[in-house]
């Protein structure tokens, strides 16, 4: 018991850090679902490309010697910009090339298209990095190395705090954008009723493209933060993280922006803190390897009682 209390604060911090990354990626799934009723399974690769763009930017700054002279937060912002722009643009391109031509096709068709885009992006990145760097694993330079030791049991690495801080700022900015700005309102209007929105002289195609840009950009920012937090990236990092983030989106209520944030944080905490508690409660019978099982059991329980997710609307078929 004492040991558990000892781990708990550290474990919560780890869960939060992971949860914020999940939440940011989940936002992309949920925004695009909200507007298109389409699960953009290529989003995990948009995240991955963002991680590569951000890391390449940091490596570029490093190779030119700027990294040592500029303050770390500035370097992070430059890298985030690269990740956001690259992923946002990629999101728009994916929509234009892989989804728009089949927008009125049966639902399974864009799904297949998304899988194709995923494979294409994984191998494209592998090919490009392979030719360019002769290795498709990239190691991001460390930006924030200091560790704040609060108690011997609770060590707060600065980079975790940066991830949490940056994610909070980005999500806050997204929230203001969506609720206050003209285009944010247009996105929500299109999500609710495309035809009526077009009567308000809203160009539905532009709004969809914008949604893909914003959703993709959040994914790219998450990718860059992910790279600074975990250092190692490869073209396949999107797969597991994408599944987790999608789960978070469903958990929170797909289509709901606050839902994605709540779902991401909850999943992150369940995976790290929940499983540690469960391990102690069962005297080690349930080990860490069951953390995904725990997360999905809780997902299923929540969906049984609240099929729309925690903050989602009750599922209603549109007539």
């Amino acid at each position: 018991m004492e040991q558990l209390l000892h781990i708990l604060p550290q474990s919560l911090l780890d869960g939060l850090t992971l949860g914020f990354v999940y939440a940011m990626v989940a936002l992309g799934y949920t925004m695009i679902y909200g507007v298109m009723e389409l699960i953009n399974f290529a989003h995990s690769e948009v995240f991955m490309v963002g991680a590569f763009a951000g890391t390449e930017m940091l490596l570029f700054l490093q190779s030119r010697g700027y990294l040592g002279t500029m303050p770390a937060p500035v370097a992070l912002i430059v890298a985030l910009m690269a990740g956001i722009l690259m992923s946002g643009t990629l999101g728009v391109l994916i929509e234009r090339i892989a989804y728009r031509p089949i927008r009125y096709a049966p639902r399974l068709v864009p799904f297949i298209s998304a899988i194709g885009v995923s494979f294409f992006l994984q191998d494209a990145v592998r090919l490009i990095e392979g030719l360019w760097k002769n290795a498709f694993y990239l190691t991001a330079p460390s930006l924030f190395t200091s560790v704040i030791t609060i108690t011997p049991g609770l060590r707060v690495p600065a980079k975790s705090l940066i991830v949490i801080l940056a994610a909070l700022i980005m999500m806050l900015a997204l929230n203001i954008f969506v609720t206050r700005s003209k285009w944010g309102k247009a996105i929500r209007a299109v999500a609710q009723d495309k035809e009526t929105a077009s009567l308000m002289s809203i160009n539905v195609n532009s709004v969809i493209a914008l949604t893909f840009f914003v959703g993709g950009g959040m994914g790219g920012a998450a990718g860059t933060l992910f790279a600074t937090q975990y250092s190692l990236i490869d073209p396949y990092i999107g797969f597991i993280l994408g599944i987790k983030a999608f789960t978070a989106a469903v958990l929170g209520g797909i289509g709901s922006i606050p839902g994605a944030m709540v779902g991401g944080l909850l999943l992150g905490i369940l995976e790290s803190t929940g499983i540690v508690i469960l391990g102690f409660a069962t005297h080690g019978a349930i080990g860490i390897e069951y953390k995904d099982v725990l997360a999905f059991v809780i997902l299923i329980i929540i969906l049984i009682f609240k099929p729309g997710g925690i903050l989602g609307e009750e599922v209603r078929e549109k007539v």
Binding site: D14, T17, L18, I237, F239, V276, G287, I288, E289
Partner: peptide, 12 residues
Amino acid sequence: DGITAGETDFSA
């Protein structure tokens, strides 16, 4: 304990 290959966060 076990981890899952392909994951990157081993804090738990």
